[in-house]
């Protein structure tokens, strides 16, 4: 990670601020993957009804939200450095992420107000629903074409020097690692919580019986 600041090559035009690119794009991609994981977990939950998939879903959406917010923040910093304003409405990617954040914020509102026995099912349905909304939001925002954002990947392949590409890939892999680790940790903790709760109820039942 530190290598990104010290060693990775700078863009001649953009200078030091360009380094944020190594974070911005991987974070953005990972957040989409997280929402994708939540969608798949939703489908699996509706198929089998296992509580595990509900937990994977809610943790993934939480992490996806975290990464989307970071995407918008880093994107905004980049916008400030490149174009002199914190926010540009005609940049499709930044605006899409804002819409996506709103879309997934509703997931948590739904989760907190759904009845107990319907919560997991509704979360699963909304996880699938919202993921279908992501590309639609992206496309709808993009229909209003914009050339403000530097298009780094073009159809011919990656439009950056080899050394930049290597650092970019390293960063991307690292971000996926961060996501996978956080997901595992959070799931472990939830499993421990659940075991604790079960133990408590069983103990209470035992005490009541005695």
């Amino acid at each position: 990670m530190i290598g990104l600041f010290l060693v990775a090559p700078e863009d001649a035009d953009q200078g030091v601020i360009q380094r944020i690119f190594y974070f911005h794009v991987p974070i953005a991609l990972v957040s989409l993957v997280a929402f994708g994981v939540a969608c798949v977990a939703g489908i699996l939950y509706l198929r089998g009804g296992r509580e595990h998939w509900d937990e994977v879903g809610v943790v993934s959406v939480g992490l996806g939200m975290l990464f989307s917010v970071l995407t918008v923040i880093t994107g905004s910093i980049w916008a400030k450095a490149s174009w002199g304003t914190w926010w540009v409405w005609d940049d499709p990617r930044l605006v899409t992420y804002l819409v996506v954040i709103l879309l997934y914020a509703a997931y948590f509102v739904l989760r907190s107000s759904a009845e107990d026995n319907r919560r997991a099912r509704y979360s699963a349905v909304y996880g699938i629903f919202a993921f279908a909304g992501v590309p639609l939001s992206f496309y709808s925002v993009r229909v209003a074409q914009s050339f403000v954002h530097p298009v780094v990947f073009t159809r011919g392949g990656a439009d950056m020097p080899g050394s930049m590409l290597i650092w970019f890939v390293i960063s991307l892999v690292a971000m996926f690692g961060v996501f996978a680790t956080l997901l595992q940790l959070e799931l472990l903790q939830r499993r421990a919580d659940r075991a604790m709760r079960d133990l408590k109820t069983r103990l209470e039942a035992l005490m009541a019986g005695a």
Binding site: V99, L102, L103, A105, A106, V109, L110, S113, Y126, F129, A130, G133, L136, S137, Y139, S140, V141, V143, A144
Partner: peptide, 16 residues
Amino acid sequence: LLPVLLLPSLIPVVIA
């Protein structure tokens, strides 16, 4: 709940 749930999904509809 409903407006919070519905309006974000309607943003693409409004744009288009």
